[in-house]
Design a protein around this nucleic acid. Sequence first.
DNA 1: CACTAATAGTTCAATGTCGAAACATTGGAG
DNA 2: CTCCAATGTTTCGACATTGAACTATTAGTG
Lengths: 149, 149
Amino acid sequence: MSIGFKISEKEKEALGLIIKMHRSLHAVESKTLNRLVDIKLTVSQFSVLEVLYHLGPMCQSLLANKVLKSSGNLTTVIDNLEKRELVERRRSTEDRRYIDVHITEKGSALIEEFFPGHMERLVDVFSVLTAAERKELARLTKKLGLGQS
Amino acid sequence: MSIGFKISEKEKEALGLIIKMHRSLHAVESKTLNRLVDIKLTVSQFSVLEVLYHLGPMCQSLLANKVLKSSGNLTTVIDNLEKRELVERRRSTEDRRYIDVHITEKGSALIEEFFPGHMERLVDVFSVLTAAERKELARLTKKLGLGQS
DNA sequence: CACTAATAGTTCAATGTCGAAACATTGGAG
DNA sequence: CTCCAATGTTTCGACATTGAACTATTAGTG
């Protein structure tokens, strides 16, 4: 069809890389997150809950940073988590601009129900790579991610 | 804070990997796709348009497969592209279930305007890795992606 | 101390996103 | 040929997502 460009080898390589990165991440998440329907959480809700569970209470902007989403989006996601009483907002007393988000007992219980199976699936998914390959993939993705200041 | 689990080394590795994969992809796309505002396209719209430009007309289910989205979503995205006359739907005559989506002249022009800069940024982003590292990253992501049938 | 710049969070409109149900069309089994 | 399973697309409701405009609060500068 209509190929209007000469695409160089280097460009072809970059295009191939970004596509492979997408497909691999998509494949991994399909296998590890599809069971979220069982506990009626969306991927975003799970991400937020997991961060709060493992790292403790946190203000929304920091949370947005952790899950790579906008602050406006966090408002929505946390609203929906709060409706189900899985998290709690608590206005900071020192600096009243901040709102610390706390996971509730109910929220913790949900994570504890889901997490073991999740971990099992995650480890299983990466087991198609050898230990050396996993280490190298970690190194390369880290270098690539940090390389863009 | 509340650590209710013993997380094994293997699990910690898997968690680290998925996070690094997310962060690297996010960093790459932030740098390469932020200019889409210049041509008023969303990321999804660009993905669809790019596939059509380079691979030619295609039915929606195949398109959904290429861009890793649901068929219901494709209906929405293509609706919005069609409103701006960047693509055209044409019902297939052989099998009337299919709707082939064609990119228009206007759509092609938009891609041709954006693509050179996009490629340049993409190559630049990956230049933080050596040629050998890029090749290895391609191999590993491919193996990881295909490993999950 | 007053004013201003910076930061945290919310709101809003537009679009994206999924999954399930519904509809249209086709192909295959009896 | 007829029915039915399979496939492509749309619709719908709920939620996600962004960026920009807005409010509240704080910190810094003169």
